[in-house]
Design a binder for these strands. Sequence first.
DNA 1: TCTTATACCGGTATTAGTATCACGTCCATG
DNA 2: CATGGACGTGATACTAATACCGGTATAAGA
Lengths: 93, 93
Amino acid sequence: MVRTPLTPLERERGRHLGLLLRQARGERSMAEVAAAAGISAETLRKIETGRAPTPAFFTVAALAGALGLALDQVAARCAEITEVPEEEAPAAA
Amino acid sequence: MVRTPLTPLERERGRHLGLLLRQARGERSMAEVAAAAGISAETLRKIETGRAPTPAFFTVAALAGALGLALDQVAARCAEITEVPEEEAPAAA
DNA sequence: TCTTATACCGGTATTAGTATCACGTCCATG
DNA sequence: CATGGACGTGATACTAATACCGGTATAAGA
């Protein structure tokens, strides 16, 4: 295999990142924040719901800027994710 | 077109990001830094040379961690890139 | 000279991010 | 009830990131 598929840990980290961004968005609409960050609302939705677990650096940077978040804080919070919840870690994988 | 191809500005920004990382790497070898960041040396090389202009967020975060860089500083430096050098901006594009 | 290490480059393979479209749900408002 | 907005989900299209391979170049050392 050439490009390693995302590990469950990476997916969990992406889910965490999505939650962070969603919390920071607060009451603002997805469309508004997405427009402010210069990305599509669909992409923001995928990131927030964890369906795009490893978005591009500049995408996250633009979102952090639009949401008033510090990138280092975001990265630190995501780096805390070091294990996958058992409910989310199927034994078959 | 569905996924917008990278604009010349995005490529220029990626080139800038690569230079930042290379400077921060200093005398250390690519293999060493790549291993410290948990990525392949090939990927690090592509990022440093600007051939992968929009790397994943966690990839940059891991590199910044391995290099002792602050993500906000990196993003801010890259955000300064708002125009493409004329030599690099073909009129045909 | 030969070997080794480092880095650059091209190609190739595979997965993932980004964007658009369509449809469905929920909720508030008319 | 109808309508619209916001969010969710799935499919589809296309580009890009990541990784591995082989080849090349250069510099240092035996």
